[in-house]
Structures are given as C-alpha cells and as structure tokens.
Amino acid sequence: MTARRPLWKTVLGVVLTALMLFPVYWLVNVSLTQTSDLRSDPPHWFPWEPTFEGYQAVFGQQLPALGTSLLVGFGCVVLTLVIAAPAGYALALLNLRGGRTLNFLLLVAQMVPAVVMAMGFYAVYNSLGLLNTVGGLIVADSTIAVPFGVLLFTAFMSGIPRELLQAARVDGAGAWRTFWSVVLPVSRNSALTVSLFAFLWAWSDFIFASTLNRNGDLVPITLGIYNYIGNNTTQWNAIMATAVVASVPAAVLLVVAQRHVAAGVTAGAVKD
C-alpha cells in the first residue's frame, strides 16, 4: 500500500470530498450573501461582497437561545455521567445480578423512536407542570445519551485489569473508593467520549425541543432557527448565519477532541 501512492487517487479524493461538503460550503456562502443578491439568477457562487448582517442579527437576537442550548448541553452531560458511570461500574466490575437483562434493555431502549418518547414525556410533563422548562428538556434529551453512555462505560470498564482493582482492595479501599479513585480516573477518556456525544445530541436535538419546550421563555438554538424559518422566509442569509453559529460548537468539539474520542473507544488507559 505504501509503495506507490498514485496522484489520481488524491485528486479524486479531493473532488469527492468537495462534492460531499458542497452543502456546507453553500451554507456559509449564503450566510454571507447580501439580502438583495439572495434571489439573483444565477445564484452567487462566491460571496464577493460579503455581508455580516446575518451574523449581526444572530448575535442581536439569538444569544439567549445559544445560552439555553449551552445550559441544556452541559446539564445533559452532567446527568448522563452521574447515571451512566456508576451503572457501568456495577455492570462491568461488580457483577450485578441481572446484568445481561439490563444490557439487553438498554439496547432496546436505543431503538425507541424519539417521537414516541416525546409524546410520553408530553403527557407526563403536562401533569407535572414541567412543560417549557429547561430542566424537563435536559431530562428528555438525556434519554438519547444515557443508554449509549452506560454501554460505552461498561465496555470500557470491563477491560480494566483486575489486578488494578485487587491492588486497591489490598490497600483497604471499598467499592466506592475504588470507583472514585481508581476506576473513574482510568476511564476518563470514556467519560470524555460520553460527554462529547451527550453534549452534541442535546445541542442538536430538535424533536424534544419542538414538542416539550416550544412555548418556553428559553428556547434552544435549534428551535430558534426553526422559528426563524417560520417567520422570516426572505432573510435566508440570517437563517444560514444562525445555522453556521449553531454548528460551531459541534465542529470545535470534534476537532479538538477527536484524538480523545478515538483513544477512548479503542485504547486501554492503564498506560497513562
């Protein structure tokens, strides 16, 4: 494979990537296009005279929505970790009775369509008065991430060498201390992976936001964009600017943490 690296493959690769990413380019392009040029025929392929009106509109109107999304994202990360990490420990290292069944239930839970969960939550929240609250949205969003988190923690933790745990026991550590000072530090890459996806899913969620939180004072950014489209079909540059801003944290997280994600899924953490 390394002997010869034909140039045509690189060229083809670049062309394919460009085709695949064209919608992303178009998103950025439109976000910078002058309102008067949006409907020109043919469309402007490149924003020769870029405008930042769209972005000004975002920061003028959508800052609260961005804040809400951050809050929901972080809330979801915390809730997911608090539930998934101890459960993973119980399943992987404490030989929980009925662990197989629990694993199976978690797999099944991942197959339940979000729209069905949304209806169930709507009925429950309606009686509890939790509709249109940020807390309610955090809990609903976490249902996407918790089963994934438990399964990932379990898979990783069952690879932790037993000698490490026995050493802790010899030193007199109980189950809790072993979890807190040995298992958790060793599993930090998994925790990072779980956090990353919990955040991304909560940040990008549309179904729960549009059903459980649609009349809230604090709407997340996905709903901000959706309402924007509804009210404002002429200013696609502003809509697209909002979309670009909404994509930034996702992109940043994955670029910055990509290495950790790969490491978390594959490598053992005993070395570091």
Partner: peptide, 14 residues
C-alpha cells in the same frame, strides 16, 4: 464526517 456532526436542523434547512 462533517455532515454527520452538524445539527439536523442546519443540514435540513441548507
């Protein structure tokens, strides 16, 4: 991987 990490509302509206 980029299309995959964009929020769905972003890709769908694009």
């Amino acid at each position: 991987l980029v299309p995959w990490l964009l929020p769905l509302i972003v890709s769908a509206s694009t």
